[in-house]
Amino acid sequence: MITPAIVRRNTPHRYRMEAQKCAACGKVFFPPRLVCTCGSRKFKAYALPSEGKVITHTVIRTAPRGFGDEAPYCMGIVELKDGSRVLCQIADCEPHRLKVGLQVTIEFRKIQEAGESGVIAYGYKAVPER
């Protein structure tokens, strides 16, 4: 679902990968939360690193509404250099290049749009070295 308010609300983490670190136990949360699994409610701002590796992957060939034009596209769970994980598309990647351990960098890409006339939602994708 893409609406102006949703796009705006998600800007800090989708645009800048803003995460948070629990002030008590040091656990990193992306996206930010209000309470840590340790019970603490105090967090420090923390920006995720932009490099990491693919720990699992797939190629989406049957896409959901809004993604049909891009299929087939690669997706994966990326473990960033600090151990944090994100799930995202792996852009500019031929399916045969996908493998566990593939080194990737986070790039800013268009993720979805609310139809031809609606707002555009941007965010992060992982891109392998060319």
Binding site: D69, E70, Q89, F108, R109, K110, I111, I120, Y122, K125
Partner: peptide
């Protein structure tokens, strides 16, 4: 440009 690229994404990467 890829289907997920436009002037905003290109400008952002150049700016970064």
């Amino acid at each position: 440009p890829g289907p997920d690229q436009d002037v905003i994404t290109i400008s952002v990467e150049a700016a970064r």
